[in-house]
Computed example of a mutant assay.
Amino acid sequence: MTVGDPTPRAVAVTRVRALALTGAGVLAALDLSLKAWAERDLSDGQAVDLALIELRLVFNPGVAFGLGSALPSALVLAVTGTIVAGLAVFVWRTPGTGAPVTAFALVVVLAGAVSNLADRAADGVVTDYLHTGWFPTFNGADVLITVGGFALVLGSLRAPSPRSGPAASP
Rank of each mutant, 00 (worst) to 15 (best):
V11Y: 10
R9N: 05
D41N: 10
V101K: 10
D31W: 02
L71R: 02
T94Q: 10
G45Q: 04
D142C: 00
P162S: 07
L27R: 04
R17S: 01
A24E: 03
L144C: 03
L42F: 03
L34N: 10
L55K: 13
P6C: 13
G165I: 10
Q46R: 15
T14E: 09
G4S: 14
W37Q: 08
G81A: 06
S161R: 15
V58N: 01
I83S: 15
R158K: 11
Q46K: 13
D128N: 05
V76E: 01
L87E: 08
P160I: 01
V108I: 15
S115V: 07
V125L: 09
R15W: 14
M1T: 08
G68T: 09
V153I: 15
K35H: 09
S73A: 11
S169R: 12
V114T: 03
V143N: 11
A88L: 12
T82E: 07
G149S: 08
V26P: 08
I53G: 00
G124C: 06
I83H: 14
T2Q: 12
A99G: 10
G4M: 05
Q46S: 15
A29S: 00
V153G: 15
A118E: 07
I83W: 14
L110Q: 01
A118V: 15
V48C: 12
T7K: 11
L21G: 09
D44H: 11
G23Y: 04
